Amino acid sequence: MATMLDYINEEEAILKQIMMKYQPVAEPDLEQLTTLLILATGSSYNACLAAKATMEKIANISITIEEPYNFNHYGTIPNSVDAVLAVSQSGKSASTIDAMAHIKEKGKLTIALTGNSESPLSDMVDYLVDIDMGIETVGFVTKGYSATVLQLILLSLTIGHSKGIVAEKIDFYQRELDKVIDKIPEIIEQSNHFFERYEELFKVSSRYIAIGYGPNWGTAKEFETKFTETVRQPSQGFELEAYMHGPYLEANNEHILFFIETPSVNLARSKKLRDYMKPYVGKVLTITTEKSVDEGTLGLDINCDEFVSQLALVIPFQLLAYKIATTKGIDLNQRIFDDFDRILQSKI
C-alpha cells in the first residue's frame, strides 16, 4: 500500500516529467484574457493561492479565487471576468461541478485543471489542462498539490505566450522552476534531519501555526490543511500581516510557530515578528530558501525567484506532517470517516 511519504518521494520525477512535456503554445482563446475567476476548495484552493501572485505577475492578469459551494449559492460573476477556471484533482467535486454548470449558462470561457481527464468536470469545459501526475490513492494529497501549483504556473506562461509576452521572461521562469525541482531530493533529506532534531518537541506539541507571505501564504494554508488532516491537532496558516491583527493574542507556550521566509520586501517584517514572538511561544522555527543561520532554521539554500519558491517551501511541511503524525502514533493508512463522501455527497 502506497503511503503519503511514497508520493512525496515521487514529486521530483513527476514535476520533471511535467516540465519536459511543456511547450508554450499560443492559444487564441487565452489571448485576450485579463481577468480570471478560479473555483477551488481544499488543497486545490491552497495551490491556487500559492500560484496566484506568480500567475498575475507572469501573465499580467487579475485573479479572484472563490470556494465553489459558497459561490454557487451566493456569488455573482462580474462582467469583467473573461474566464472561469475550475481546479479539482479528482474532477468529482460536486460543488465545483454544480458551479461550473451554472457558469456555462453565462457564456464565459470555462477551463478545468484536473487529474482525471474523464471526469464529469472535464466533460463540461471549453479548455482542459491535465494535472498529469498519475494516481494518488492517499487522501492527504502531496504530489497532486505540487503538480497543481506547477501546472497553474505553466498555464500562466501559456497565457503570457498567447498575449505576446517576451520569450526571455518565459525562459527565465522555466529555468527557475527547473532549479527548484532539481533540489527536491536534497530538500527531503534536509527536512528529515530537521524533523529528527525536533522530534521530541513535535511529539508532545498540541498547537501548530505557520506564517507566510506572497506566494507562501498559500504554503501556510496548505500547512494548515495537511497538519489538520494528518497530525490532527489544532493547526492554522496565516498571511504575515493577518497574524499581526489579532491571532497573535492567543500565543502561549504550547504553540510552535513556523515562519516561511524567502528574500522579499516582506522579509524584514517577518523577521521582526519572529523575534518578537520568541518569548511568548514554545518554539519559533523558520523554513527559508536562504541558508541556515541557527539550529531553529531549516535553510534550503536555494537561490531562486520568490515567485517559484512555493514549490520548494511546501516540501518540508508535507514531510513534517507525515513524520509528526507517525511519531504521535497516528496510522495514516487506517481510513477514518469512510462514509463521509457518501452521506454528505461532497463528491460524485
Rank of each mutant, 00 (worst) to 15 (best):
A2G: 06
L5Q: 11
Y22F: 15
Y22N: 12
P28E: 15
D29N: 10
L33Y: 09
L33T: 12
T34K: 15
T35A: 14
I38Y: 13
L39R: 02
I58M: 08
E67Y: 12
D82I: 01
G91C: 05
S95E: 14
M100Y: 06
K104Q: 14
A112P: 04
T114N: 11
G115V: 07
S117E: 12
M124I: 08
M133K: 13
M133W: 07
S146W: 03
L152I: 00
G160H: 00
S162R: 00
G164Q: 01
K169L: 11
K169D: 13
F172Y: 15
L177R: 11
V180G: 03
I181R: 00
I181A: 02
I181L: 03
I187T: 04
E189D: 13
H193R: 11
F194P: 06
K203M: 12
I211M: 06
V231G: 02
P234L: 05
G237F: 02
Y243V: 00
M244I: 10
G246R: 04
E254H: 08
E254N: 10
H255Q: 11
F258Y: 12
V265D: 13
L267H: 10
L267M: 14
A268W: 12
R269S: 14
K271I: 11
Y280V: 04
K283G: 09
K291W: 05
D294S: 14
C304I: 01
F307A: 03
F307L: 12
S309E: 01
A312K: 00
Q318A: 03
Q318D: 00
K323S: 08
L332M: 05
N333K: 12
I336S: 11
F337S: 15
D339E: 15
D341K: 15
K347T: 13
